[in-house]
Each structure stands twice: as C-alpha cells, then as structure tokens.
Design a protein around this nucleic acid. Structure first.
Lengths: 339, 339
DNA sequence: CCCAGCGTTGTAATCGATTCCACGAGGAGG
DNA sequence: CCTCCTCGTGGAATCGATTACAACGCTGGG
C-alpha cells in the first residue's frame, strides 16, 4: 500500500508538504496542493491511521464495553453510540462482556492497549482494579446505564423510580397485591436500584416485598426461567412477576408457558426495558421504556467533551411506563368490581 | 503511560532486551528476564499496540461490516464472530451499514485505514469500487451470509433451498394456495436467492408466483409493513405471507394487527431467520433457522486461514424449517377436511 | 595458549506519519 | 538598495515498538 513517501515522490515534493496538504495546513502553495492531490488520486493513497495515531497520540476511537450485545437494549444503545460518535468524527470499538467480569476486563485491557481516546462502560460488576486504575490514571471514561459508586466518572443513565411507581400504581389498580421481582445482580447498580425502587413503590401502597418474592437473576433469559419456576412452586405464588430486564422477562414467559399457565389470567408479567418485540408477544408485555437512543448520544457527547478538554456532564433521563396487556385488561377500573 | 524505554531504564537493560522478553524470544538470560518482568510490573507497563502494529504491519484485528446490527440475526452473527476471533487471538471492529451502501463504504474505508488484517463483509449491495478494489488488491476478505458474485472471495453462508421447499410443502399441506413473499433488495444475494428458492418450490407444486405477490422490501420492519398493506389491499389477498427476514416479518405482523386481522386464521405468516422472540409472538412464528453461530465461526476460521497463509475455504451450511403456529394448526391433515 | 562458537546484549535502522526549525525567495517599507 | 517579514518548502527529530547486525564474554577443543 502506498505511503506518504510514494506520494511525495510522485508529486515531486517532500513528505512534509504532503502531510501539510493532507491536514490542510494553510501554508501550502496552490500549485503544490494540486500536484499532491493528483498524486494521492493516482496512487489511491490512504493515510495510515496506525502511524498517524502513534505520532499524534490520538486514535479518534472510542471503546464501548457493554454487558451483553444479545440484549436488544444494549444493541440499540451500541447503535446510537456509534451513530453519535461517527457524527463527531470518532469510531467505536465494541467489547461484549456477556455479563462476565473476566471478559469485561479482557476488553478493557485490549481497548487500553489500543490507546483508544476514551472509554464508555456499562459495568458488569463493582469494577476490577484494572478499570478503577484506568479511571484514576485519567483515562477519559463515562459510565452509561450502569455505574460504579465512589468513582469520579460522569454517569449517563435513566432514572426508573417514577416509572416503577407508575407500574406499581397500575398493578395495584388492577387489584394485584402479591408482587414479585426477578432482580439483576446486586453488584450492578441497575440490579439493586430496580429492586429498591420497586420496594419503595410497594411500601407506598402498604404492600410487603418478602424475601421469597425477590428472585436473584443475572439479566439472562435462563435465570428468568429458573427464578420464575421458583415463584410458581411457592405455596402461594405471586400474582405478578416483574423482571428487571427484557431477557429475564423472556425466560419468565418461557417458564410460565411451560406450566401451561396464561398471562395475564393466571399470572401477570412486566419488564424493565422496552423492546419492539414486546408489542407482538403473547400477550403484549407492559414494560418500562428507557430513552435508549438519547442515552447513547448523551454518553458519547459527555465522553467527547472530556476528551477534548471540555467539562463533561452527568445526565439522568426519565424512563416511562408503557402499559400493554400482560398485567390484566386495561378496562376502566369501574368495570372490574368483581375480581 | 510508561513506554518500553521506561521499562528498560528501570530494569537496567536496553529496549531490545525488554522487547525480547515481551515477545519471549529465547536468547535472554533468566536474570535479565526477571528484572524486566519486575520493572513491567512495577510500572504497570502495557505494550502500545499502535506502535507495535506500525512496526510489524499487523494489527491482529478483523473488521466486520454487517448490514444491520438491530437485526437479531446479525447481532448473533457478530457475537459468534467476536467469540471465535478472540479464541484465535484477534479482536473485531464492527461496522454497521444499516443497509446503506454509503455507510458500508464509510466503514470499509475506515477499517482499511486502520490496517485491519482482514475483512468480513455481508454486503448491502453489489459492491462499491472501493470494496472490489480492496479485494483485488489482496486484502484478505471473506463474505458471510451475503456475497457478491464474480469476486474471488470465499463465501460462508447458509443454503435455504431445502428449507424453503420444506416450508412450501408445509404450507401446501395446510391447504394454502395463494402465497406471497416480501423480498429483500435484489442487489443482495439473500434478497434474490430467497425469492428464487420460493418460486422454484412453488413451481414443484404447480403454484404460480404472480408479480402482485412479490413485494419489494429492504429487510427493514417498515418495508414489511408497507408491503403487507399492499397485499391486504389486493382484490384477492394472499393466504400466506413469507417474509425474507425477521424484521420484515415484524412489520408484517404490525400491518396485519393494525387491520384487526388474525394470524393464522385470516392470513398465515412465515419468516426467514429464526430468533428467540418468535417463540413468544402471537402466534409463534414458523421460520427458517440458519446455523448462525456456526456461520460466524466458520467465517472467522476462513478469514484467519487466509491471513495466516493457509488456503481459505468457502462453506455452505443448510438452514432448516422450524414449524410453529403462524401458518395454521399443526393438526393431522385429515382433520381439516372442511376449510 | 589460541581461536571458534555460543549465548547474551546493545546500537541503530525502520515502520509512516507529524511538526519544529531553518532556509531561500520575494515583496514592502525606509 | 538594504533590511525585515512573510510565505512556502525541505530536512530531520520524534512517537514506541521490532529486529538485523555487531560486539562482547565465556567455554571448550585443538
């Protein structure tokens, strides 16, 4: 592949001049510029980003480490991140941690070795020494969706409290009293926050959240299935299962169907994270929707601000409840006088 | 960040020796090795992949340009690609073309500039000059899922012919005679192949495929919706709609539901590409499943073979039909004597 | 005792860019 | 006409690694 030297030779100028043309530095004569451009064209020259990065110490690349690409929520996040980054002149390298701390570490290490300009992370756990060191050492970093308390890094996330309260109000209005939750890993903020928001909302209605009604999941479909089976085996199974993410809701749906039970007649279901497929499941699933695209874009903007020397800002956007049919018919409350 | 020079100074040796330790070259004394390793540890030194790539002319990175990350099929493909690549010591940079040739070109250009070792592409169109030039210039390349005829590049893909024949047999057995297809872009191989396979299978049963029953989609949900509306507006709407990918099936489902029609009673639906959600849609969708994971892994192996100087092999794996309820009840044919 | 050969090490060239510095030409001003 | 400045340009250092080559000390065989 042609290098800058070849171009210089072709154009009859020095490499310095070629470089200046390429970076449109003002002090180049029109004549030289034309000759260089012609040579570039003729040779099909393309700038070697590797060499350029070595010299300038910037890669114009962002790293994005997400917990699970197969989760449509994160896929959409990744997509919006790439879109905004591209608009700002950056590329994105995605690392999929698959909810495994060791894989997350592998990707962080790899991205750091590649000298990415900044890191966007949705941490799978409390943070490995590697990641904390990087943050402390000044690697531009922004947490998105999930974060690690006590680390001085901007956070871009959705606040689900109000939406969870709306959900509980909806469920209470439908007459449900025994509610259960499939929680995410306690090591993640989204894992614990959603349980807390749920507990708080229940308390407002004087409803308890006994330990038996808190199932420990790991944000993967299988765990949703397993936990739901546990709920159904209870002497008095809950009337509602609230899954802390969409994959666990999928697992719950599997488990419920496997028992031959029906949603919402036998048991109601709701999920955190709305996705297009929820419109077409049987029945359509009531969910809490995050402003995913806006989250991704805001995260990139914060990170790029940090990289380019502007003060980055944490952002919190509200999530909102989307009512469908999986928790009971949406008929006016008056109608359902007799349960 | 500490460089190899800092390590050399710390350890009291030359940079050459440090480099030799790092690449475990045999001729280094045990003593020197220990001192270097200690210095590496103490300084928290990490090899600069950028500098290393410049010198060695390899990045140990694969580029993957896919047509649409939001399509669960491609998400899964991307995941398996990354997994296999990691196992083989490579990282992957994903470029999402969003079914747009210009974006596809942007990513190919970007990846080439980064001097990736090889390119995995699922082309959105017939191939831009840029991509064809790269292939001709000897950039290691492998097509996955979709391919471009006439280019000398290995292809890893699924063959859906048999599965489509099985599908048509299934539909015919259920009594359906007027079948329609939502096709993908004719510029893509998967777009045209699936229509041809469908047409050929119909011919075996003496069924026609009139132009009115071929809707032109673009593999996106919206087009599925639009085309389906067109079908439903026909004087005699088809009895079955076969969507050439899962997103268009989602769109079709939307359109059907919007008309207040029911699947499969009013109209049957089938899709190419199976995804976990199809189990839980209303009704569960009959689909043709590709061995996605195996496809991704085989593609990476072929590409790495090519990169490392071994002869790469094209691979074709069979797809298979997964019958669910969206085309009609699976009851024994005898039962449905009266339509 | 000398020298060939081995193992270990350092010096320096190199990869492909960017950029500081110096230099020459040419125009403006005194 | 001389000086000073600006503009355009090239030479060369530099980024952080890898690696060819040369040199060193030591051992053992002749």
């Amino acid at each position: 592949m042609a290098s800058i030297k070849d171009v210089a030779a072709q154009a009859g100028v020095s490499v310095a001049t070629v470089s200046r043309v390429l970076n449109d530095h003002p002090s180049v004569s029109a004549d030289a510029r034309t000759r260089v451009l012609a040579a570039v064209e003729r040779l099909g020259y393309r700038r070697n980003a590797v060499a350029r990065s070595l010299r300038t110490d910037q890669t114009h690349t962002l790293g994005l480490v997400i917990s699970d690409v197969l989760n449509p929520y994160f896929t959409e996040l990744a997509r919006s991140v790439e879109e905004e980054a591209r608009a700002l002149g950056y590329s994105v390298i995605i690392g999929n941690a698959d909810e495994r701390p060791d894989l997350q570490d592998h990707h962080v290490r790899n991205l750091l070795d590649r000298r990415i300009d900044g890191l966007l992370v949705s941490p799978t756990d409390g943070g490995s020494p590697l990641m904390l060191d990087a943050a402390r050492a000044g690697t531009p970093m922004v947490f998105v969706d999930r974060w690690i308390p006590g680390v001085d890094v901007p956070v871009v996330r959705a606040d689900g409290q109000a939406a969870v309260r709306d959900l509980v109000a909806h469920l209470h209005g439908l007459g449900h009293r025994r509610l259960a939750i499939i929680a995410g890993p306690a090591a993640t903020t989204t894992g614990s926050e959603r349980v807390e928001a749920f507990r708080a909302a229940l308390a407002e209605y004087g409803l308890p959240l006994p330990d038996a009604c808190i199932g420990q999941g790991d944000f993967q479909a299988d765990s949703g299935r397993r936990v739901t089976e546990g709920f159904l085996d209870l002497p008095r199974p809950p009337e509602v299962v609230f899954a802390a993410d969409n994959l666990m809701a999928l697992g719950a749906l599997d488990a419920i169907r496997a028992r031959g039970l029906r949603v919402p007649d036998d048991i109601a279901l709701a999920a955190f994270d709305d996705i297009p497929w929820f419109v077409h499941t049987d029945p359509p699933v009531t969910a809490i929707a995050q402003p995913t695209g806006e989250l991704g874009r805001a995260a990139v903007r914060a990170l790029v601000d940090r990289i380019e020397g502007r003060p980055p800002q944490s952002v919190t956007l509200p999530a909102r409840l989307v009512v469908r049919r999986s928790c009971g018919e949406d008929s006016p409350p008056v109608q359902r006088s007799t349960p």
